[in-house]
Design a protein around this nucleic acid. Structure first.
Length: 193
DNA sequence: GCAGGGATGAACT
DNA sequence: GTTCATCCCTGCA
């Protein structure tokens, strides 16, 4: 399963690393991925750790699809599914650098309207913010990423990627499975080595 | 059936 | 740094 230069059948940490610098659009709105976290059925921080449930079934399906879940009763979070079907693994998309070129002005305006904020650095800097800016909800769960409304575009240049501990979890804190683009202004939190 | 907790974000002090 | 909005899943009765 290869899409936008990313091998989605690889282990999730590899997929997360490869996703940094890739452009993600939903219905034409989005930006470059600058922060992503890997999750796998083998470690307790993952929704997959407990096995297949109604909530996480997407992550046990074929790679290259979406997994969208509700966080804290309020926010939607977008993941991409990786590994082989039945394994249970995914990558949480945590932050985007919003596309800001002249051709993308309409997309930027839609993100600002959905978020209700003007500052471009607050549009997609966090998994809940990102989903709101892109209009992602439960309706986007378990959809293929190589078909509308999703569009993935390969890196235009090499990205310098740093690894560090994941954010907001209480288990498997030792795994350095958060990947960020070095020096990005659009991270949800600064990188820690 | 019910209590506890969470891959968050915003508004506080 | 702390608090809280408020849904869904889990574990235990």
């Amino acid at each position: 399963m290869d899409l936008a230069g990313v091998d989605f059948s690889a282990p999730s940490p590899e997929v997360a690393q490869q996703l940094i610098g890739v452009t993600l659009l939903v219905d034409g709105v989005g930006g470059r991925i600058v922060e992503a976290e890997a999750y796998d059925a083998s470690e307790p921080a993952s929704h997959c750790y407990i096995g297949l449930t109604e909530r996480n079934f997407s992550m046990f399906g074929p790679p290259g699809r979406s997994y969208v879940y509700r966080s804290h009763g309020l926010h939607w979070c977008l993941n991409v599914v990786c590994r082989e079907p039945g394994h249970g693994a995914g990558v949480l998309i945590r932050a985007l650098e919003p596309l800001a070129g002249e051709a993308d002005a309409a997309g930027l305006a839609r993100m600002r309207a959905r978020r209700g904020v003007d500052d471009v650095r607050l549009l997609c800097s966090g998994p809940g913010r990102l989903a709101q800016a892109l209009g992602v909800t439960r309706a986007h769960n378990n959809l293929p990423l190589d078909a509308p409304p999703f569009l993935l575009l390969p890196r235009e240049r090499e990205a310098e990627v740093l690894a560090g501990p994941r954010i907001g979890i209480s288990k498997a804190l030792e795994l350095p499975w958060r990947f960020v683009e070095a020096g990005s202004r659009f991270l949800s939190k600064p990188h820690r080595g």
